[in-house]
Write a protein that binds this DNA or RNA. Structure first.
Lengths: 344, 344
DNA sequence: GTTAGCACTCACTATATAAGAGTGCTAACA
DNA sequence: TGTTAGCACTCTTATATAGTGAGTGCTAAC
């Protein structure tokens, strides 16, 4: 099955895949001999291709009509044949400029990251923004709004901030809320949002010792937890992907778009690859059957050593792996800087 | 040109448009006679249709093959022929439940509004979220974060809140920032964000009388203004629209999606109809040539008497006007409640 | 004023044919 | 023994042609 393949076979395999990635059409021996400098005749190439097919690296659509790489073929290509294609300095400058021009608020960083990736790779990009569940509760503060409302500001360790207006129970004063903030902060500071449980709540209840006020604090804590659970997914390139010949059929487009709208499905895919650095999953290697014709490249990014989120490129198996991989690698390492720049 | 058309012609015109809206195919006299109870023979219908074409209400694609409504035909239909199709009570309940299930933060209201509209109408929906430029500056407050950073919280009249972390100049203390907040609030409170000009800034400069601190306040005010300028556009239904036979061609899909990505273009369209209540613009009536085959229905929503934003449906001229119009009307009046419910 | 009848148009479908690209095999060659 | 040329065969794609059906417009009869 997996016999070693000699250097010439590798050269031919690489040529087939390069050509197929470029032209999206089954490639035959004649074209190969003409376009690539392989030094052998089409007939020889035919023999070698037949061998490569036998070994599972290439596939035949119909009896006649050129060959197409299989998942195994792409895998071999990705693991050993592709030349590194680093992001050029000009591209880096462009990317930096783009961030500067477009990003004003922290959440826009993720949207624009998705945008950049899809623009460069002409494929769909996915960016999973930081999951606050793993962030630590830092503090909660109140600001007076008027006689019966206060603004609640929640802050986590990683520096993310959320706010919400809440009503004060009748009879309560802003001072009561200040006191409540102290109680909550003392009890919850340093805990990750997903480890705040009932026993903490009951302590808070005891310390607050006022039913309506406790109700308010519950509302606030639940809101904080909800916020923590909701990591956000940003998509990019759903228009660019139409440039790929794979999507010449509207049904295919619809199917793909509908799949992309299923946030939970997509998140699960991204979770599956979380924390493993740069990872490429090709066609058949995908567990979900919807993705048997797609490849996914994922990369995780960090901040101060803490895992923050995932960025990914999703496209047809016929994808410019070299380009996408080095771009993701760069975006990945760059994202930390960008977040710091715009948020601190 | 615009001679009055008698009752029978109107009945026939309505039947043609109803049928075309339903089936997306040119409608002929025979089909019309069979499906609709018009009480006359196909031949008579043919004569009437020929008249309606002469008057500009119908169009012929090819010499033979049924008729299709013109923009003028749709206009007449929308202005006088469509039966009102109010949102049913069940639908209202569903919509309410949907909001409750999905919306946690204020900005999600707009996203979900777009989502609901597109789900119901099977067309693209556009929601222009409140423009803060017209909102009044209410107040600015600071919260201490650590020794060298503070959280800035900006609040506008309509209750929208934004926050940002900023660095303190070396040597400055949190008390300095508190003082700065007072100065800024005294000078700017009650002004709309787009009327904050240089003379206000120079007064602030005089009162603060400390260069690094003034720099910080400038940074904050500019951030506030930037926030005000950036009204946000939410899109929905870019997948649903593929169900319409108008989009059986991928090129058409791509063209439309690319147009929708041009935020400025779309915003301009929405601005053009701002403040006019419910408005329908049909095909040729659109000034922008990209929209000559599309119809746009817009509605503006208000909060406490103040104009807030616009919601719209964008689709092929062959659109279920009755349904879309009553839905927009309802969403429109309902949006105020929803915003209040989730934000106050 | 309405309707039946009829010739005509035009798009759409199905079928046949031809062209082109590619394969696999065989046999000759270095 | 590996490489190559040649050739028959397969299968897709493009093109042309004929047939079908829905619809119109006109005329003449009711």
């Amino acid at each position: 099955m997996s016999e070693p393949i000699d250097e010439r076979k590798q050269r031919i395999l690489k040529a087939v895949i390069d050509d197929y990635i470029e032209n999206a059409e089954p490639v035959g021996s004649r074209t190969l001999a003409r376009k690539y400098d392989l030094g052998v005749s089409p007939a020889t190439i035919r023999n070698e291709m037949a061998d490569l097919e036998m070994l599972g690296y290439l596939e035949h659509l119909h009896t006649s009509s050129g060959r197409v790489p299989s998942s195994k073929g792409y895998r071999f290509y990705v693991d050993g044949l592709i030349p590194p294609k680093p992001v050029s300095e000009e591209e880096k400058v462009l990317i930096d400029r783009w961030y500067n021009a477009k990003v004003r608020r922290i959440d826009e960083v993720f949207q624009e990251t998705a945008h950049i990736i899809s623009q460069v790779t002409k494929n769909v990009s996915l960016v999973l923004a930081p999951q606050l569940t793993q962030a630590k509760f830092r503090c909660l503060q109140f600001l007076p709004l008027d006689d019966y409302r206060v603004i609640t500001v929640l802050m986590t360790d990683a520096g993310f901030i959320e706010n919400k207006i809440i009503k004060m129970p009748s009879g309560a004063t802003f001072d009561d809320f200040q006191r409540m903030a102290r109680v909550i902060n003392d009890n919850l500071a340093g805990h990750t949002l997903d480890t705040i449980h009932h026993h903490a709540l009951s302590e808070i209840r005891d310390e607050i010792a006022d039913e309506p006020l406790y109700e308010s604090s519950l509302e606030i804590i639940h809101w904080a937890l909800d916020n923590g659970k909701k990591e956000r997914l940003y998509l990019g390139g759903t228009t660019q992907m139409l440039d790929q010949p794979e999507f010449h059929d509207v049904e295919k487009v619809k199917e793909t778009l509908m799949m992309l709208e299923e946030e939970e499905l997509i998140k699960d895919i991204l979770y599956a690859h979380m924390g493993d650095g740069l990872e490429v999953t090709i066609g058949q290697e995908n567990k979900d059957k919807h993705f048997k014709d797609s490849s996914i490249i994922t990369a995780t990014y960090h901040l101060d050593g803490e895992l923050l989120g995932t960025i990914a490129v999703l496209g047809p198996t016929r994808m410019e792996y070299a380009k996408a991989m080095s771009l993701l690698e760069y975006m990945n390492s760059n994202l930390t800087n960008v977040i710091k720049r715009f948020h601190w």
